[in-house]
Write a protein that binds this DNA or RNA. Structure first.
Length: 241
DNA sequence: GCGACAG
DNA sequence: ATCTTGTCGC
C-alpha cells in the first residue's frame, strides 16, 4: 500500500518565513547604475536549476503586481489554487510604496520586494508557483520567475503575456499548440496557445522546473480564459479597482 | 547610431 | 504596468 516513488510530487512549500539572505536584493535600491543589478542577476543565474516537477501537484500558487495610477503604490497579490477542485482556496495581498522604476530586463528589482512580502502571508502549502513574467527567457537568463524562484529556492514557472527577447514562429491556432522561443540556437521558452483565437502566452522555466512540466501545468490550469486560472485570479486580486 | 523592450 | 471609446461577439 506504499506510495510509489513515481507518484511523489516535489515537497510542498509550506509557509515561507524567510528566504536566502545571501541572494537578497531588497537592500539594493535604485542607485543610478544597472551594473550592480547585472551582477546580482549573474549570481542568481548560477544558482538556477532545471528539472522536471513530476506528477502535476494539486496545489498551485501564483502571484502578480499592479500599480496605482500615480505609480507610487504597488499592490502585490498571491493565491493558492486547488487544481483538483478547480477553485481558489487562499488569496491575499499587500500594499506598499514602490520607489524603483521599471527598466526592461530589471523588472525583478521593482516587484520582488512586494512579492516576498505577500508570499510570506500565504498559509496554505503549494508545490509550484506561477509568476507573471519571464523566467529564463531573459538576456541573462534571470527574469522575475527565475529570480524569485532562486531567492526562495522553490519551483517557479514564468508565464508572460508578451515577449521580452527571442524569436518564434506563430504557434498553431488550437489550444495546446505551441512553438519554440529561441535565442540563436538555444530554446529559452515555449509560445503557447492557451485558447483559440487569443494571443499566445510565453512560457519559460523559472527555477526547479522544466519546459515540459511548465507546459503541462499551465495548460491544465487553463479553463476558458487566456491565462491559467491561478494567475488570472492573482492578476484580478492585484488590481486597485 | 537605431530600434526593441516582461510589467 | 496604466489610461482610454467604441465595438464586436457569445
Amino acid at each position: 500500500m506504499g506510495i510509489q516513488k513515481s507518484e511523489l510530487s516535489a515537497t510542498p512549500i509550506s509557509k515561507i518565513t524567510s528566504y536566502n539572505r545571501e541572494m537578497d536584493m531588497t537592500d539594493i535600491r535604485w542607485t543610478g547604475s544597472t551594473q550592480t543589478w547585472k551582477q546580482v542577476q549573474e549570481k542568481i543565474r548560477r544558482r538556477l536549476r532545471v528539472q522536471p516537477i513530476g506528477p502535476l501537484p494539486r496545489f498551485v500558487g501564483a502571484c502578480d503586481c499592479a500599480f496605482s495610477t500615480d505609480g507610487k503604490r504597488i499592490r502585490a497579490s498571491a493565491v493558492v489554487y486547488d487544481r483538483l477542485e478547480h477553485r481558489l482556496i487562499e488569496q491575499t495581498y499587500t500594499l506598499q510604496n514602490c520607489e524603483v522604476p521599471y527598466i526592461p530586463t530589471f523588472l525583478s528589482f521593482r516587484e520582488i520586494p512586494a512579492l516576498l512580502n505577500v508570499l510570506q502571508k500565504l498559509e496554505h502549502p503549494y508545490s509550484v508557483l506561477l509568476v507573471d513574467g519571464q523566467g529564463v527567457a531573459h538576456p541573462r537568463r534571470c527574469g522575475i520567475a527565475t529570480h524569485l524562484g532562486v531567492l526562495l529556492d522553490i519551483p517557479t514557472v514564468g508565464c508572460a503575456k508578451s515577449r521580452l527577447i527571442g524569436t518564434y514562429e506563430e504557434p498553431g491556432p488550437r489550444k495546446g499548440d505551441y512553438s519554440e522561443l529561441k535565442e540563436d540556437s538555444e530554446t529559452i521558452g515555449w509560445v503557447l496557445r492557451t485558447r483559440e483565437r487569443v494571443k499566445p502566452v510565453f512560457l519559460s522555466v523559472g527555477h526547479r522546473t522544466d519546459l515540459a512540466s511548465c507546459y503541462k501545468l499551465v495548460l491544465d490550469c487553463c479553463t476558458h480564459y487566456r491565462l491559467p486560472e491561478p494567475l488570472r485570479q492573482a492578476d484580478r486580486l492585484s488590481k486597485f479597482h
